[in-house]
Design a protein around this nucleic acid. Structure first.
Lengths: 100, 100
DNA sequence: CTCATAGTTTGATAGGAGTCGAACTTACGG
DNA sequence: CCGTAAGTTCGACTCCTATCAAACTATGAG
């Protein structure tokens, strides 16, 4: 379907991270992924009343900020948190937003 | 000159905090305050090439996000970090941006 | 009192970001 | 092979934000 690119976290600046986390919709997505059974979630499983286009855009932003990684499964694409790597890059930050 | 209002940190949302920290100029201001000798800094002592109006606006944003507090001394207004309170409200967050 | 200094306020402007509908692409299922 | 479902891309629109110049306010210095 598409090959997603995931940045090396050493290339992600604090500013990029902050901008990605400065939108309530994106934080809600991260929390939804966190609370999901499998740790993975598809775009259309997001508990937000937003259009497909908008959700897709938010996922792209989160991906570019190194917060999530996405793999293709059939017609779906499942996203999960890059929890461990992110903790090393920005200690405490991800937990802060997940527990908000 | 003016009476500055400082929010109760329990009223500051994570989103407000993130938005305030999502601008490089504001992070630079926080770092400048942090690195200052006295722990306080005036608007015109900021190492940024921005107009007075813009700097004033950034200080207001930081104040509204509970990151700094400002006191009036003569014609100057000196701002300092609300370090301890912020650490209680959003553990690790301020240190993260100061050390970036 | 007068002037210079520090910040704020007020428009005004330009750029960016979130949003959507619609068209497109890819994959699975019958 | 055709239809449906999941995401992406594109173009357009709106709103928010960073920015500045200029006018204003208030304080201290001479």
């Amino acid at each position: 379907m598409k090959h997603y690119t995931h940045p090396d976290l050493s290339d992600v600046t604090l500013n990029t991270a902050m901008q990605a986390l400065a939108d309530p919709a994106r934080v809600a997505i991260l929390q939804a992924v966190d609370r999901s059974e499998s740790g993975e979630i598809a775009c259309n499983e997001i508990p937000l009343e937003l259009s497909k286009a908008t959700v897709s855009h938010h996922f792209e932003t989160l991906r570019a900020a190194g917060l999530i990684e996405t793999r293709v499964v059939g017609t779906k694409c499942l996203s999960s948190l890059r929890r461990k790597e992110y903790e090393e890059r920005f200690p405490g930050l991800l937990d802060l937003v997940l527990q908000a």
